[in-house]
Simulated assay, not measured.
Amino acid sequence: MYVSVTALPPPGSRVAFADGVKVSVQDADGFACDYGSARFGASLDPRPLTASAARRAGPEVRRCGTAGTYYVVVERTVSSRSPVSSAPAEKPSSTEDWDLELYVASEPALAKAGPTTPPQAWDSIAPEPPAGAPLPREGGSGFATARALSTGAWADRVRAGQTRYYRVPVGWGRRLSVTLEIGGGARGGDYVTSALVMELFNPVRSRVEDIDSAYDGRQRTTSLPALPPVAHDNRYEALHRVSGMRFAGWYYLAVHLDPDVGARFGTDAVGLTLRVNVDGEHRRGPVYAGTPRPADAFTITERDESAARKGVGGGGSGGPGADADRASGAPGGEGGGMAMKVLAAAGFGTGTVLLGVLGVWRAVARRRVRMSA
């Protein structure tokens, strides 16, 4: 079972270096099977944060290996400040509630045991990005509305403080490479570190890699490090940008522009270009002993490839529009009959949210829960 949580602070919120979100999967006795976290870091920029965790099963797993009820624990973390400090006083973090977006997927074991070592050889040199004038393709505001991209050059515009989401279908044996260009022409004489951040997430919304680039008003180009072809065996590699390429499916790109760019270079939207390449030989995927949940979570179909060429938005596992259906509670977008549930309340303040995942097959698409301080 894989679970991810995306925290969505309101625009303009004050955040500190260590503020962020933590998610863990726990058994009925409170034992943490796994946990993950994300924080804002030095940019102090209230952008969307995504953290992920997993529950793994198998004969070698002593805890958390049996079927039953598991709990997803989501914690909003805040910076701890010493009452005695020689440093200038920090402004306290904002206490506004954060929206949460949650996603759960389950991957069965293999029908027949396969290799337990990562592939030994793959081309570690990224291919040349696609050339030519980019075509317009406006990104979405989150995973559920991410705009589909295929191989090619795609143009968009992003304002300071915005995050744009895109998704790319990557099948078994295929390799993804992405180059990001940001337009120039703004007045010079100033400089923003980590002005542009691009993150890559795999089909279970676990972060694979992230890069950032400074901005001084001139055109900038940055690329993801070379990624391996998608293969089940990649999970046995220690390097995360290799182990993260363990599934076929929709891969997500999140591109964020720091609010300081607007303060220093003007509030006009900045042009960006994504040059996306998916190459490599199509390969047959692994044979699972059961059915993934959602049923088409770890595969790419001709319909998916067509959606990418046409730029369909609002996708993810389950095909175009499936995530949008889940978020609204609509039937028919739940990949193989996966039981989905939407919970709504007031917001996610400081504290912890505890969610039960019954039989590992229930997912929570979105939740807003008010917590006590």
Results as ranks from 00 to 15, higher is better:
220 R>G: 12
321 G>K: 02
127 P>S: 07
328 S>K: 08
45 D>E: 09
155 A>T: 05
297 A>R: 06
232 H>G: 06
127 P>A: 11
240 H>T: 15
351 G>C: 09
169 P>D: 04
370 R>T: 08
173 G>V: 01
41 G>V: 10
101 E>T: 08
321 G>L: 00
269 A>P: 15
90 E>D: 14
64 C>I: 11
113 A>P: 00
317 S>Q: 14
106 S>V: 13
113 A>W: 06
273 T>C: 01
216 D>V: 11
274 L>R: 04
136 P>W: 00
246 R>Y: 01
102 L>S: 09
101 E>N: 00
200 L>M: 13
63 R>K: 10
7 A>Q: 08
33 C>Q: 04
317 S>A: 15
55 R>N: 05
289 A>R: 07
98 W>D: 02
357 V>R: 10
234 N>L: 14
281 E>G: 01
239 L>P: 07
127 P>I: 05
166 Y>S: 03
239 L>N: 14
159 R>C: 04
22 K>D: 14
123 D>S: 10
47 R>Q: 12
186 A>W: 01
155 A>S: 09
352 T>N: 10
80 S>M: 06
176 L>P: 00
313 G>E: 10
70 Y>H: 08
139 G>P: 03
230 V>L: 12
81 R>K: 07
295 A>T: 04
314 G>Y: 07
337 G>S: 07
220 R>Y: 06
278 V>T: 02
229 P>T: 11
264 R>F: 13
83 P>L: 05
183 G>V: 04
207 R>D: 03
71 Y>Q: 04
92 P>Y: 06
2 Y>H: 15
45 D>R: 00
257 L>P: 03
257 L>T: 03
227 L>T: 02
361 W>E: 14
64 C>K: 06
23 V>P: 02
78 V>E: 12
74 V>A: 07
68 G>E: 11
205 R>W: 05
225 P>T: 12
133 A>L: 09
308 A>K: 02
269 A>L: 10
202 N>L: 10
38 A>Y: 00
140 G>V: 04
277 N>L: 11
207 R>C: 09
20 G>Q: 07
104 V>K: 10
194 S>Y: 13
177 S>G: 09
282 H>D: 14
231 A>Q: 15
366 R>C: 08
261 V>R: 11
365 A>G: 13
66 T>I: 04
288 Y>H: 06
314 G>A: 03
73 V>R: 15
94 S>T: 12
353 V>H: 11
365 A>R: 03
108 P>G: 01
279 D>V: 05
326 R>W: 10
207 R>N: 13
31 F>D: 07
126 A>S: 12
23 V>C: 07
31 F>W: 13
328 S>G: 11
208 V>D: 05
342 V>S: 13
268 D>L: 13
240 H>W: 08
136 P>E: 09
310 K>Q: 12
289 A>L: 08
166 Y>T: 02
148 A>K: 00
145 T>S: 14
95 T>S: 12
271 G>K: 08
162 Q>H: 08
